[in-house]
Amino acid sequence: MTRDVSQKQETGERPDLEHLDAAISHVDQLVSSGGIASGAAKGLLYSLIETLGTLVGDPDLPEHARSGYEGLLETARELRIKLEH
């Protein structure tokens, strides 16, 4: 049985890197296909960027995990810039 993200947050566990990557990829696919309004995509990206920024700033985060979250943060920022043009 798997626990959902809200249960992980209650216990202080970090969200899985794969789930955050999937969320960014999904937003990118929706933007590319025109399946989401620009404002909605920006809102989702804002939330993802804030979450990733918090994770990257966690002093207890192991360095190997930090680099993965930093990569996703950069990807999300690039997508946000793409939406602004």
Rank of each mutant, 00 (worst) to 15 (best):
4 D>A: 05
18 E>G: 08
39 G>M: 15
62 P>N: 06
40 A>E: 09
84 E>W: 00
33 S>N: 12
5 V>E: 06
74 E>H: 10
43 G>H: 07
21 D>W: 00
19 H>D: 15
48 L>R: 03
9 Q>V: 11
74 E>L: 04
27 V>W: 04
1 M>Q: 08
59 P>D: 14
30 L>V: 09
26 H>R: 12
25 S>Q: 06
83 L>G: 03
7 Q>K: 07
44 L>Q: 09
67 S>P: 00
45 L>Q: 05
19 H>V: 13
6 S>C: 14
57 G>F: 03
22 A>R: 01
15 P>S: 12
12 G>Y: 12
20 L>V: 07
48 L>N: 02
5 V>Y: 14
25 S>N: 06
22 A>K: 02
23 A>Q: 06
63 E>L: 08
40 A>G: 02
78 E>D: 13
84 E>M: 08
20 L>I: 11
10 E>S: 13
57 G>P: 03
79 L>R: 07
16 D>M: 12
5 V>L: 15
43 G>Y: 10
60 D>T: 06
6 S>P: 12
49 I>T: 07
66 R>W: 01
50 E>P: 00
53 G>E: 09
66 R>Q: 11
45 L>A: 08
24 I>F: 09
33 S>I: 02
80 R>L: 15
74 E>Q: 11
12 G>K: 04
9 Q>H: 06
1 M>E: 09
37 A>H: 15
5 V>G: 02
21 D>G: 01
3 R>E: 09
84 E>Y: 00
44 L>I: 12
29 Q>Y: 14
5 V>C: 09
82 K>Q: 12
70 E>N: 08
62 P>D: 10
10 E>R: 10
60 D>M: 05
25 S>L: 07
41 A>L: 05
53 G>P: 04
76 A>L: 12
61 L>T: 05
60 D>K: 09
51 T>P: 13
4 D>T: 10
69 Y>I: 00
32 S>Q: 13
34 G>N: 07
31 V>N: 02
69 Y>S: 00
32 S>K: 13
21 D>N: 03
70 E>M: 08
76 A>T: 03
32 S>G: 08
51 T>H: 05
56 V>M: 01
51 T>F: 02
77 R>M: 14
13 E>D: 08
72 L>V: 09
51 T>R: 08
84 E>C: 04
9 Q>W: 10
33 S>D: 13
56 V>W: 01
40 A>L: 15
76 A>Y: 04
71 G>L: 06
44 L>C: 07
37 A>V: 09
37 A>Q: 15
42 K>F: 03
45 L>S: 10
58 D>Y: 02
61 L>D: 10
22 A>Y: 01
55 L>Q: 04
85 H>L: 13
43 G>K: 08
15 P>C: 12
55 L>G: 01
68 G>M: 09
80 R>Q: 15
48 L>T: 01
59 P>H: 14
83 L>S: 03
68 G>W: 05
9 Q>G: 04
56 V>R: 01
30 L>H: 11
1 M>Y: 02
11 T>A: 12
20 L>S: 01
49 I>C: 08
76 A>W: 06
29 Q>V: 12
61 L>A: 04
16 D>I: 07
75 T>G: 04
6 S>N: 05
